[in-house]
Every structure is written in C-alpha cells, then in structure tokens.
Design a protein around this nucleic acid. Structure first.
Length: 271
DNA sequence: AACTGAATCAACCGCTTCCAT
DNA sequence: AATGGAAGCGGTTGATTCAGT
C-alpha cells in the first residue's frame, strides 16, 4: 500500500490561504459538493493539494463552523468525552456541533491539559490499562512513525510527562472512521433528525449507535479520586466552578473492578 | 519603544483505514 | 486474497500574536 505523492508535488502553494483561494474553494464545493479531493484543486483552479483543500474546508470554510470561545459546557463535554474516547478528536468533535477536530485538539493541548494539571488531575489516563481485547494487527508502530514521534517533545507532551502516574484507568476504544457515516458539520442534528440525509437502514443503525454512545459519554464517569480534588490547591477556581466534572466518588463503582470492563464491552458492541 | 519568551492555532506530514478492482 | 488509490485521522510544526520586562 504505497502512499500517493499527494502533497509532494512541486509548484503547489502552501501556507496560509488567501481570500481568493477561500472563495474559489467555497464556490466550487457549493456547486459540486464535497469529495473527490484529489481532483478538486485542478477543477477549482487552485494550486493546492487535495488534502490541503479538504482541511481548509473542514476546519474553516464549511458552513456552521463555530470559531473560538469554547464554553465551559463544551470544555466539560470535551473532558468527559476524552476520558472515554482518548485522543479520538474526530469522534469528540462529532459530539460538539460546529467544532472541528483540529480546534478541539488544539484547545485540549493548549488549555485543557494545563487546567487539568493545575487542578492536580492526570489528563492522560490511558496507562496501566487492562489490555482491551483486540484483533491481531498488521503492524503496531512503524519505524517511520516512531521516528516522527521522537522528533521533538511538544508542550502537551511535556505537560503530560510531568504529571504524576495515573490512579485510574480509562478504556481506549479502537478508532473508527467517523465522517462517512456521521457528517461532522451537523452530527448532532443528524442524530435528532432520524433518517435525514441517509434513509438506509445502515444510516439508522449508525444513528442508534451514536445515540447510545452519547448516553455512555454523558454518564458521570468515576475518573478522579476524591483526594485529588480535596488536595487541589490551584487557583483556577473558574475551572472547578464552571465545569461539571465527574468529581464525585462512587464507592459502588470503585468496588466493582469489572464495571469498566463491562462498559467497555458494551461500547465495543455498540461500535 | 524594543525586545523576548510564551501562547495560540492554522496548516502540514505521514500513517492508517476503507473501498473498489 | 492482494493491491492500489483515495480519504481520514492524529501528531507536530511554525508563523503570528500576546504579555511581560
């Protein structure tokens, strides 16, 4: 499976998009719809690679995009969903209408990681997990991927590395492709309006799955030890007051070591 | 006002996954 | 079953902006 040389072509423009380019792209997609990104630039008269066009459309030009001012409610939801899904930004974005995976990822890395660390909370709760049942994989981490990850340590990575070892566990489900089934631009709308867009039974199944996942995501999750909250001496009270974080200690939950296993199994079945 | 370091976020890179053949 | 093209995803980069001195 070789990679196609999408963005390595010489002569293609890179960097920030101009207003003219935005207009060309938006007009073309309005007339012809999304998709066929590879051939889109040429047809639209753009000197960009298809990937770049797709990214620009998805993260900036697409109708209904909300920009900036992520509300405390949204932050709370991001934190909850991240505790459930891990770094599955597209899945998380699918639960936040008008937000893009890129924006959520950036917000997490620049704001939420810091907030959680300041509150004495380990943001990356994916270590020491009981290995989820998984099918045999072709390859784990390629040499190139490992090399890329080794390059430099990001601020986010530093924050996470400096944090204390995790006390609790969170399951990290396998990533699934989202967009083809759940258009991100109006994912929540699509959940509410059953059958709109896709009338196939598969589409309805997806709606049901997403609704079920959403219910799981909204369950108050026993992520944090109570002493973590009690020992918090940070000064970011807005964060603690503004968010409905799952700070409640649930003895029943902690006393049942198999609960997360069961929830994870249910989640896998839903997927 | 000038400089510097930190913070932010749009865009890029490369890998994975899906799907048609 | 194997292959290759296309799309999607998550990690990372780097230009720009902001805040502090």
């Amino acid at each position: 499976m070789g990679r196609s040389p999408c963005c390595s072509k010489v002569g293609l423009k890179r960097g920030p998009w101009s207003i003219e380019e935005d207009t060309l792209l938006a007009n073309y997609i309005q007339e012809n719809g999304e998709g066929h990104w590879r051939s889109l630039p040429q047809k639209a008269g753009l000197l960009r690679c298809g990937k770049s066009c797709r990214l620009r459309w998805m993260n900036y030009l697409r109708p209904g995009i909300k920009r900036g001012n992520i509300s405390p409610d949204e932050e709370d939801l991001i934190i909850r969903l991240h505790s459930l899904l891990g770094n599955r930004w597209s899945l998380i974005a699918g639960r936040l209408p008008g937000r893009t995976d890129n924006e959520i990822k950036n917000h997490w890395n620049t704001h939420l990681l810091k907030k959680l660390n300041n509150a004495g909370i380990q943001p990356k709760l994916h270590k020491d997990l009981p290995k989820p049942p998984k099918k045999p994989k072709k390859s784990t981490t390629s040499a190139a991927g490992a090399k890329m990850k080794k390059k430099t340590k990001t601020a986010a990575a530093e924050v996470e590395e400096a944090a204390p070892p995790p006390k609790t566990t969170v399951y990290l489900p396998k990533a699934i492709r989202v967009s083809s089934s759940f258009p991100r631009s109006n994912s929540c709308d699509s959940l509410l309006v059953s059958g709109s867009g896709s009338s196939s039974s598969e589409g309805d199944n997806n709606v049901e799955k997403e609704n079920a996942i959403a219910e799981v995501a909204y369950v108050p999750w026993p992520l944090l030890e109570l002493d973590e909250v009690e020992n918090y001496h940070g000064d970011d009270q807005d964060f603690l007051n503004g968010c409905d974080l799952p700070f409640i200690h649930h003895p029943d939950v902690y006393d049942d070591p198999n609960l997360l296993d069961r929830v994870y199994d249910e989640y896998l079945q839903l997927l």
